Computed example of a mutant assay.
Amino acid sequence: MINTWEVLKHGERLISAIETPPTTRDLSFNHTVTPAFDMLFVQRPNGNYILLIYMRIKIIYIDRGNQYWSFLDKDNFEKNFREKINKKWGASNIKILSRLASRKNISLEFRFSFNKIGVFTYNHWTLNVIKLRKDEWAQSFVTSSLRTGNFDTNDFDYVKKSPKTYQRGAVHEFGHMLGLDDEYNSGVFISDLKSIMNSGETIRQRHRAIYMPWLNKTLREKNIH
C-alpha cells in the first residue's frame, strides 16, 4: 500500500495511484510480488498536476580494494541519484507532459526514498553500489526480474559511447528500472545512437509509453480535461 506521507509534499493532493504500473513489456517485469515503482497522479496547490514515479530503493554500499565508503560519499551518491536521474528523466527534461484544455499543466517528476534503516516493509529495488577509483571501470547492469542492480561511483560520469555520443551509466540503467529494453544491440532503433536506451541520453516519445497510458486513463476516469 502506498503511504502518501512518504511521497507527497505539503499542499499536494492525491487524485489517483497505482502500485503495479503498466510497462512497455507485458512480461514478468510487472507481474511479481513487488512492483518496480509506484505511480501517483497529484494536484499541486496552484492547481497544476504532477505524474509522480516513486521508488523505494535499498542501497548496499560495497568497498573495493582500498576504496571505502564514507558517510559523505553515501550522501553524495544518493543526492546525485535524486538530482541527475530526475533532471534527465523528469521535470527538467520534460517540463510539461501535457497541457489540458483547462490550461492546467501536467509535469513529470521522479521521487525516491532510500531505505537506510529498514523502515519500509519492502523495497522496489535493491542496488549494490561499488566504490571505485576514478580510473577504474566496472560493468553496471540491472536485473529486472529480481529488482536488483549493480552500480558504481563512476556511473554519473560521461563516457564516450560512439564518435558523437556520450552517456552516463546510471541514467541509462535507470531506463531498465522503468522497464525499458536496450536498443543498441538489436531492433528497429539500433541506429538511433542518441537514444538514452542506445548510446546517448536523448529521451524519445516511445520511452514515455511506460506511463502515458495510465495517465490518459486516469484523466478520462476522473473527468480531468
Rank of each mutant, 00 (worst) to 15 (best):
I2H: 03
W5T: 12
W5V: 08
V7N: 02
K9W: 14
S16A: 15
S16M: 05
P22M: 06
F29N: 08
T32L: 12
T34K: 14
L40V: 02
F41M: 09
V42E: 00
V42Q: 00
P45W: 07
L51T: 02
Y54M: 05
I60C: 08
Y61N: 03
Y68T: 04
Y68Q: 06
Y68M: 07
S70G: 12
D73I: 06
D75E: 13
K79R: 13
N80I: 02
I85H: 02
K87V: 09
A91S: 14
I94C: 06
R99Y: 07
L100W: 04
A101E: 14
R103D: 15
K104V: 05
N105C: 10
I106Y: 03
T121V: 09
N123K: 08
H124A: 03
V129K: 01
K134A: 14
D135Q: 11
S140A: 15
V142N: 01
T143R: 14
R147V: 01
T148V: 12
N150R: 13
N150F: 08
D152L: 01
F156L: 05
K160I: 09
S162V: 09
K164Y: 10
V171Y: 01
V171H: 00
H172R: 11
E173V: 07
G175S: 09
M177I: 05
N185S: 14
D192H: 12
S195A: 14
I203K: 10
R204M: 10
Y211F: 15
P213K: 01
W214D: 05
L215D: 03
L215N: 03
K217A: 13
E221Q: 13
